[in-house]
């Protein structure tokens, strides 16, 4: 996608929100340039080698927008219609030979907590956490939200009103490769860029934070990415 078109798309969503439009609006997945997931060293990520005890963090479709890649310990549910306060869409389900690889924005839809290199309040808890009491949940400890990644990440607890925003994946069985190809809407992306603009400029540089991530995106385990300073709720 041309960069100008890309920025316009995001800007247009901001304008819709600013106009005060309210209510659920059906929105198909938004296509973004196809990006191959690689490891920290730049080698292609192999689905068969993914860990199951932690989520991976990668950035997509922008250099600064963090997403989770999760290898669930069981097959995910079937694709389903998702409706929230913000929009309606079809969650495409999981990919991989076992249908257990899913991806969502790592930005909490409640008040936008996200993983940084200094730490993360939001995480995938493969084991039962004190807050959720059951395994395989995404928990955001900032305000105690729980999401189920095996079912499209609907909110199970907390003040979030929207599911975590899914990232559409594509799986290539010939190479055991994983690609990201789109997002379920851009309202969260827009809000993230607006909310953290000061910090993102400081971290990435003016304008750099909203550049497309490129042909590949490195996926790193959350505990590594956030220096071990990950929530435990």
């Amino acid at each position: 996608m041309h960069r100008r078109r890309f920025v316009t798309l995001c800007g247009g969503s901001v304008a819709m929100l600013a106009a005060g439009l309210r209510g659920v609006r059906a929105e198909p997945f938004v296509d973004f340039p196809k990006v191959r997931l690689v490891d920290a060293a730049g080698a292609p990520l192999k689905a068969a080698a993914l860990a199951t005890n932690d989520a991976y963090v990668f950035h997509y479709p922008l250099r600064s927008f963090p997403c989770f890649l999760i290898n669930l310990r069981k097959p995910a549910g079937e694709p389903r219609e998702m409706t929230s306060e913000a929009l309606a869409y079809t969650w495409p389900g999981a990919v991989g030979t076992q249908k257990n690889i899913v991806s969502y924005s790592a930005v909490c839809t409640h008040e936008l907590s996200y993983p940084s290199k200094e730490g993360s309040e939001i995480r995938y808890a493969a084991e039962a956490s004190p807050l959720s009491g059951k395994p395989g949940m995404i928990v955001c400890c900032a305000h105690d939200s729980i999401f189920d990644p095996a079912a499209g990440a609907p909110r199970l607890h907390g003040e979030a009103r929207d599911p975590l925003l899914p990232v559409r994946l594509e799986y290539d069985p010939a190479e055991d490769a994983i690609y990201a190809t789109g997002l379920a809407g851009t309202w969260l992306l827009d809000r993230f860029l607006k909310s953290y603009r000061r910090q993102l400029i400081a971290e990435y540089g003016a304008g750099v934070y909203k550049e497309p991530v490129g042909a590949t995106s490195a996926a790193v385990l959350l505990n590594t990415y956030s220096g071990g300073a990950v929530s435990t709720c």
Binding site: S113, G119, S231
Partner: peptide, 17 residues
Amino acid sequence: DAAKGRGTLEWARGMYR
């Protein structure tokens, strides 16, 4: 624990947002 120590600050940032 330290995780909740960090959570205390992020909770507040979320409230401001």
